[in-house]
Design a protein around this nucleic acid. Structure first.
Lengths: 208, 208
DNA sequence: GGCAAAACATACCAACCGGTTGGTATGTCG
DNA sequence: CGACATACCAACCGGTTGGTATGTTTTGCC
């Protein structure tokens, strides 16, 4: 009779299960092709539960994007790329971290919000905005390190936020090449070019 | 009674109209969200005509990707970036050309096959392959100029095809940022970073 | 223990989905 | 002229879609 709260593996609330299932399915087959029925089956809940937690499929999309922003924020906040003392080393460590996130399974390393916004940018302003907030918010989190690195190496004419957004563009583009070819290597290759770009911008030799 | 073949504006065959309508609709709202009924209405043909020309919706997707490859090949083949005598100038002119293709209307400058492959890479091998052929084929067309430019400036350790693919990744990623924000400027900004990368790789000052 | 509210489940619906049907209009070739 | 092919059409089909109406069960709190 001792408290066994949160011990049963299946007894988190349905909302969290739905969000997890949505993240997986949308990454695999896109937002539109993922049906509510399928989502419920994957999450092990009924349709009644779905529409108890989300007013519509679109609301689920918004929640999934917001959940993605929180999850990835936590992942990046706890990542080891913040450790180096030199800001440029932190930038390189960030890019290495992103590169090492690329694994064999394409749906496992590609970006939920990048996928979703491609589909719905013209049809769902709410989802589009949530995706925008996730991508641009993450870019913003890189600005302090990038700004410090650029300043330390006397780089002028490059705005830190612009470079941070370019990072995201390169990563998202690499994901597309990997999806088109089925080969994760292309996502890694684009990060390598990005590292070379940063190294030359700061006039330092390419690390590693 | 004199021959007036191909004079009536609406009397190209339905196939071409369907391909045009598909390109537009898929760029605006994605492949899955574009229904066959909608496609037929936009093309001004009936469903019967659709399934006369295409065995399935998936076959339409493949045909649209192939049609995209042909259309864009012709566009790039006739573009003025081939004119400069210096190969590096041709590479810069290519990037300028891509930058100038970016217009106000997002669905008008983004990439059909990049959009499609994001959605169906895991569900339709046939469409995925057609998109891959379009993207990687275009990258291949850049290899001669890039190879000559790299050789002329004694750049080692960079494979021309890898750089050509990086170009495509940056462009595709820029499209995603533009879709997420609603702002075409992000697509242009990423091309600017790409030009700077190429300039530094070849150790020449950034043109313009 | 009582009780309201939150958290689910069941059953159902109208609209829409991709695809098929039987048929017609217009060649075109011998 | 008849035989055959291509291009196209309106109506329809079974299944699926996102969404709802109406329960029942669990939970937190007094």
């Amino acid at each position: 009779m001792s408290s066994r709260a949160a011990s049963s593996p299946n007894k988190r609330n349905a909302r969290a299960h739905l969000l997890d299932a949505a993240t997986k399915l949308i990454r695999e087959k896109g937002f539109t092709a993922t049906s509510v029925d399928e989502l419920c089956a994957a999450a092990g809940v009924t349709k009644g539960a779905f529409f108890h937690h989300f007013a519509s499929k679109e609301a689920l999309g918004v929640a999934a994007a917001n959940n993605w922003a929180e999850t990835t924020s936590a992942l990046f906040a706890g990542a080891p790329y913040h450790l180096p003392a030199d800001p440029l080393d932190r930038v390189f460590a960030y890019l290495d971290f992103r590169r090492d996130l690329v694994s064999d399974e394409i749906a496992a390393f590609t970006c939920l919000v990048g996928t979703m916004v491609q589909e719905v940018h013209g049809t769902s302003p709410a989802i589009r905005q949530a995706c925008e907030a996730s991508i641009f918010g993450h870019a913003q989190s890189l600005v302090p390190d990038i700004a410090a690195a650029l300043a330390a190496h006397n780089v002028h004419g490059v705005q830190p936020i612009d470079l941070a957004l370019h990072f995201q563009a390169v990563l998202q583009g690499g994901f597309i090449l990997s999806k088109a070819s089925g080969d994760p290597a292309h996502a890694k290759a684009s990060v390598a070019h990005l590292k070379a770009y940063v190294a030359m911008l700061c006039e330092v030799p390419l690390p590693q």
